[in-house]
Computed example of a mutant assay.
Amino acid sequence: MQRTGIWGKIFGALLGLLFGPKYIGFLIGLFIGHQFDKAYARKRNGGFSGFGGKNATNAERQAEFFNACFATMGHMAKAKGRVTENEIRVASTIMDRMGLQGESRRQAQNAFREGKEDNFPLEETLNRVRSRAGRADLLQFFLELQIQAAFADGELHPRERELLHVIARYLGFSEAQLEQRLQMQEAAFRFQQGGYHQQQGGSFKAPPTRDQLADAFNVLGVNDEASAQEVKRAYRKQMNEHHPDKLAAKGLPPEMMEIAKQKTQELQAAYDLIRKEKGFK
């Protein structure tokens, strides 16, 4: 557990006694001092809110990006009210998908818990992510990870949707861009849940239904009336944005590389399905 110190509480309480009604001033000063101690402890211990300075190393920036992702995810889990076992399970599932073990998993869990705190500085955190990460592809990855977390239980609560709009806005994405990503993720969720993936040898488990084929188009971000050229262009664009090697070169934390790999596999499966069913070369 993180220790917050006592000096802020002491000075806050003394100032409260000097400048306010005796007991009320003491309590207000004590509360303000406690908030100061927590902020100082987080900064001292390298928490996510100290998001890299100009002289931060690449490893430090990656660690801060990683922490901010899971802290925001923790804040997302609380969007519907009290954090339930299901929300905690969703976070654990994403950690499992990343293959997080040992210290990296503990860091993710600590950041997730910090995000659940009432005084979590969401706006400050997102502003720092945007200014420090810089790369549009990394910001998109950050947003998509939050969308995946929101969709992981199979539904999107209105408060989660509202919070996703806030996150997208601070990261520099428009409402239309977010809605497109939400549609793509919803299709991807159904695509995954339907077990529609490519088996060894290039064949699929079963002939696709009309809805499964429509989901494959939506995974690529195009409608089911798209031409072969439009499908190919969308596929190349999505692969370019999510390719693990390219994201790594732009600063994606190595702990998150597995998610990028899974996304490219999903895109490949959707493209191969469309190409097979529509007879595209």
Rank of each mutant, 00 (worst) to 15 (best):
Q2A: 14
R3V: 08
I6S: 07
W7M: 13
W7R: 10
G8L: 10
F11Y: 14
F11W: 15
A13D: 05
A13W: 06
L14H: 05
L14V: 15
L17A: 02
P21L: 05
P21M: 02
K22P: 11
F26K: 14
L27D: 03
I28Y: 09
G29M: 07
F31C: 05
I32Y: 05
I32P: 02
I32F: 14
H34M: 05
K38I: 11
A39P: 01
Y40Q: 09
Y40K: 13
A41D: 00
R42Y: 12
R44P: 01
A56H: 11
T57G: 15
N58W: 09
N58V: 10
A59Q: 14
E64K: 13
E64H: 14
F66K: 12
C69N: 14
F70E: 07
T72H: 02
T72E: 09
M73T: 07
H75Q: 09
M76C: 04
K78H: 06
G81V: 08
V83I: 12
T84L: 13
E85M: 10
E87K: 05
I88R: 09
V90H: 03
S92H: 10
T93N: 06
D96Q: 12
M98K: 07
M98C: 12
G99P: 01
Q101T: 14
Q101F: 13
S104T: 15
S104G: 05
Q107W: 09
A108V: 12
A108R: 08
N110T: 10
F112I: 05
E117F: 08
D118P: 07
E123S: 12
T125G: 13
N127A: 13
R128Q: 15
R130F: 11
S131N: 07
R132L: 15
R132H: 13
G134R: 12
G134V: 14
G134T: 15
D137Q: 13
L138Y: 10
F142A: 01
E144S: 08
I147K: 01
F151K: 03
D153W: 00
G154Y: 00
G154S: 02
E155M: 04
H157P: 00
E160V: 08
L163Q: 13
H165Q: 09
H165L: 02
H165A: 09
H165E: 07
I167S: 07
L171K: 11
S174V: 06
E175S: 10
E179W: 08
E179G: 06
R181E: 13
E186I: 01
G194W: 06
Y196R: 12
H197F: 06
H197A: 07
Q199H: 07
Q199R: 09
Q199P: 03
Q199I: 05
Q200C: 01
Q200A: 10
F204R: 03
K205H: 01
A206P: 00
P207V: 11
P207W: 10
P207F: 12
R210N: 04
D211Y: 03
N218P: 04
L220H: 07
V222M: 07
V222W: 02
N223M: 01
D224P: 11
V231P: 04
V231M: 08
A234Q: 04
Y235A: 13
M239V: 02
H242F: 09
P244K: 03
P244E: 07
K250H: 03
K250N: 06
L252Y: 08
L252G: 07
P253H: 11
P254C: 09
E255Y: 11
M257E: 11
A260K: 01
Q262P: 00
Q262D: 02
Q262L: 01
K263P: 00
T264E: 00
Q268W: 00
A270Y: 03
G279F: 14
